[in-house]
Amino acid sequence: MDFFTESLGIIHAGDVVSLAPRLQVRQRMLFDHANGARHIISGKARDVLNVLGKGIEVSQWYAYSIASGLTDSEWMELIDFLNSIGGIAIRRTRKAQVQIIVQRTRWRLQGVTLQSHASRFPATHRAIAIAVSQAMSQLAVLTIFVSMLSIIAGMPSYALLSLFCISILWFTTIVHEYMHVVISKSSNHTPVIIVRGLRLGIVHHQLSRKRNILSALMGPLMGIVSAAILGLIGWAIDAHVVAEASRVVCIFHAASWLPSYGDGQALSKEITSFRKGYSYEKTTTTSTQRRRTTGPA
């Protein structure tokens, strides 16, 4: 395990790193044009981020950072922060990618879990498909393994169901995310997609309450509708396993409305703030009425 991997697990020696799309360093600020964030940065951190512009090899970047006056821990915290906002773009060879996956799996089996890299994608059709594929890659490997196991255990129908489920899930998750992107773009902003392991989210500017509710409702709904259409097609052509898989996928999309998860969280936040606003309005109106009624006749 090299120094970089041991300390963070995000970047590895030999990687070429750069600042992710929609991020810009200007004076003492790190602007995130995807959501309008303005992070304040120190002079030293600004110099270190500025060299990321066109991409730099990790060991060169580290040497530059130390020469700029950052200590090891400051440099690592900077990387940690950048990763928390999906701010580092990493380029590595296919061979290095495979080596890292093998290494990480070995460490995980030994009980060592390293941080995962948060990737940022522009909100284009192709990038949405790539982002969803990346988020689902581990699930795909697991599904293939489980399908093989099910065939060995004499349950081929389970294997077929799992494979159909993951295919339908892949397609409908793209539709689900695409809906979020469309609603965000309709308010003249360009969002980005951030993928962290199995988690995938759209980072966008603050939307109006109406659009936020619409986005939280329409994303899962479009996922459910597209899965239901595939299920109906499966049912019509007597492919009952497709219909069954679609039903399961519909439940997964509906799970997004649970208050502890993304879309459900956004909905409950909006409803709570609406209620607070409503009760505030009610209180204000009542006290105005009281003032009116108790005022001099």
Binding site: A37, A45, L70, D80, S84, A118, R199, S256, G262, G264
Partner: peptide
Amino acid sequence: SGVLADSSVDYDAKEAAI
């Protein structure tokens, strides 16, 4: 890290459930 993060924005990845 020499960074003061903008606390007014949220970077949580939202689609974990699916």
